[in-house]
Design a protein around this nucleic acid. Sequence first.
DNA 1: AGATGTGAAGTGGTTCACAGCT
DNA 2: AGCTGTGAACCACTTCACATCT
Lengths: 235, 235
Amino acid sequence: MTVTTPDMPGLHPVGDSSRHIPPASVARLTIYLRALNSLLAEGIERVSSEELADAAGVNSPMLRKDLSYLGSYGTRGVGYEVQYLNRQISIALGLTLDWRVAIIGAGNLGRALAGYSGFVSRGFEIVAIFDADQLVVGSEVGYLRVSAVDDLEAVLERTRTNMAVLSVPGAVAQELCDRLVDAGISSILSFAPVVLQVPPHVQLRKVDMSTELQILAYHAQRAQETDLDPISRAQ
Amino acid sequence: MTVTTPDMPGLHPVGDSSRHIPPASVARLTIYLRALNSLLAEGIERVSSEELADAAGVNSPMLRKDLSYLGSYGTRGVGYEVQYLNRQISIALGLTLDWRVAIIGAGNLGRALAGYSGFVSRGFEIVAIFDADQLVVGSEVGYLRVSAVDDLEAVLERTRTNMAVLSVPGAVAQELCDRLVDAGISSILSFAPVVLQVPPHVQLRKVDMSTELQILAYHAQRAQETDLDPISRAQ
DNA sequence: AGATGTGAAGTGGTTCACAGCT
DNA sequence: AGCTGTGAACCACTTCACATCT
């Protein structure tokens, strides 16, 4: 909403992106962003909350509520400009800043991540990939050369890395996590199947495939039981 | 709570796993399970809610509340038997059933998933892996041979698959998802960076690495702004 | 008229303090 | 005495209806 430049204290316009946004809402904003990109690719310039909500798999009041945390970027009676809304969400999420990502661990997962085009397209640049295995160090992954994990601190500094992805075995994850934190990295995405301890100022997110399957198992079991047992079908 | 069975009073055992467990609680139960496994590996037989909560990275009232949804599996004044609690959580999550998983897509990600030991150790058996690329079909991934995606339906049936992991490019994800659903699969874990539409009876979970990085970016941006701008530091 | 933006009500999850066993 | 199990207060998110603006 007009000159959105949240640098000068006190001059914050109405759609102040530094306002607190509920975590659940932040997660959905990333989905809207993806849906908006699809629309953009299709050449669609305008969208209603109803249409966008459908594309994102949520209901429209929820979408409008989520967007209202950012500001008023729609036009009543009309809808939203796809490109404009796309940009506003990007700004709110901080995607217009310079994110430089290092991948720790060049196994299958690390290489899959390095090759994942979704990162680059959203403003994340992968600037380094590490491995402990001397046979892997020096080999090429995409346009990158694998660095030795021994050189972690030096390479992180040289590449001005400000985010890290941990794709290493659980046994060494905490140790590497500590080194990342000591090197000044405060945003870490971990794929290691262990609980990591980090200081409060560090943002740690965890993706755990085993957990996801277990949650699916729980629901599938419930569905089975409900099928077999008409008594509890009521709920 | 006690004997909470409005249907057949008194007949269900106290720790009735068919009761509804909040989604957030289900997710944490998988973490407790992992922590309990570590304890088991260390030969520890008994644990207090405080210790287990620490290991899982939550606070102890939350852990006790979560466990209370399953039943009363601890001993007051003492704590929990590691092995017994492990088993009770496994039962509640449905991990004692026979889960047969197919991986759709044998790219780096699919291969990483196939080689991920965390699956097998928790009762998930990977029974098939598919790819569309004729150069990849027939090659070995772990102890499996890659099947042609053309044979999807036949192989799913033959292997009695009841869960699927989608690790394919976004462009073909919905099409394959539909085929999985038509083939009777009702639990799907997707890594594809698109919103998938499934019928209500199908459980779909999504893991999205791009979303995770974007959420990290949001928090990192906030941390930066708060650093620079003492006015909003109050929170 | 038509779609957005939002206050207020409703719902669900977390925290807490303490009752209840061992 | 000690630690679990849980009702109740609290808090946050979601839903909804409608006021608001084009």
